[in-house]
């Protein structure tokens, strides 16, 4: 743990970098904003203690880490874990599957809460509006195990409701659960079902910030519904959407291990295997912390490139971005 305390020192530096010639300027701003610094201190301390102090853990990606040997005595193996990962005969397939799912998630799942929030915003009956809001957020509380088990009950070819309907219409059943073609659509449907209502909350909160006077003014100017949406509502929540999008990119390659694991089976694994499940299978046999960390690090690096890139792009378009 010695390295951890030294990294604490190292990490606290950038926040308070002091260059001799700017000392008085710094002092001035410290004095002026002393309350602000005091306010930021507990949070900053939190991040240093609970996020940066343990961050030495990232280094075990370059080790053959064994818990009983500890960080200091575990063997350093350089890039072996990464080589093992990249040279795996499955790497390209895993990467492709991961990317496709992540992309579908971004394109199909991400915009839905915004659309639903805007639709809810157009409802006039407050009671209906509240009722719908309450109902659509319920799935957030149902665990993936239960969601997938219910999916089986609905979609199985042996008497599942959906397949009974399909059979009545087309005369034959569709193997939704085992046909690789149906794997991704099912994952997306489940994700939409489970997360849309919950994610709507944040957009609704942002919508409360829209200045109602603007609508009144627009009405007087004779602006229709679409123009109000386009010129008042959307601009008001735009920065929130941009932030959410950038933050989402930070988890771009996370497909949700449990979800994928529960939905994959012998017959659809060709499309279901993703990084998260691969780490599980490799780590399963021997508790390979190092390998899991190496894959995590690889994902983090991709994420950081995406986040920084998106942030830059956002700034180019005049958005505030993350910072």
């Amino acid at each position: 743990m010695k390295d951890a305390s030294s990294s604490l020192e190292a990490m606290s530096e950038p926040a308070l970098i002091v260059k001799p010639n700017k000392r008085s300027a710094l002092f001035q701003s410290l004095k002026r904003d002393k309350w602000l610094y005091l306010l930021v201190a507990p949070g900053l301390l939190y991040f240093l203690l609970f996020k940066y102090l343990p961050m030495w853990g990232v280094l075990i990606a370059f080790q053959d880490y064994q818990p009983f040997l500890g960080f200091w005595h575990s063997e350093w193996v350089g890039l072996d874990n990464f080589k093992f990962f990249f040279q795996s005969p499955d790497f390209l397939r895993l990467f492709k599957n991961t990317l496709i799912l992540s992309f579908l998630n971004l394109v199909l799942v991400f915009p839905l809460p915004i659309i639903v929030a805007l639709m809810l915003n157009e409802l006039k009956n407050a009671l209906v509006k509240r009722g719908i809001q309450t109902l659509i957020y319920v799935p957030h509380f149902i665990s993936m195990v239960v969601v997938t088990s219910m999916t089986y009950v609905f979609f199985t070819t042996s008497g599942g409701y959906i397949n009974e309907i399909v059979k009545n219409v087309t005369g034959h059943t569709i193997p939704f659960l085992t046909d690789p073609q149906w794997f991704r659509p099912l994952i997306i449907i489940q994700t939409v079902w489970q997360t849309t209502g919950w994610s709507t909350i944040i957009i609704l909160a942002a919508l409360t910030g829209v200045n109602a006077e603007l609508y009144e003014a627009a009405m007087m100017d004779g602006a229709g519904r679409w123009r109000q949406l386009w010129h008042i509502t959307l601009p008001a929540i735009r920065s929130t959407i941009v932030i959410l999008l950038i933050l989402k990119l930070g988890h771009f390659l996370d497909n949700g291990f449990e979800h994928i694991y529960l939905m994959s089976n012998s017959l659809n694994r060709s499309v279901a295997d993703v990084f998260d499940t691969y780490v599980y299978y490799i780590g399963l046999t021997s508790g390979q912390f190092s390998f899991a960390t190496a894959v995590g690090l690889f994902k983090s690096i991709i994420s950081i490139i995406l986040v920084l890139g998106a942030n830059k792009l956002a700034k180019k378009f005049g958005e505030e971005g993350l910072y």
Partner: peptide, 11 residues
Amino acid sequence: LVIFSMLFGGG
């Protein structure tokens, strides 16, 4: 610092 901590965790 905050954003970086979202992307890299010690485990």
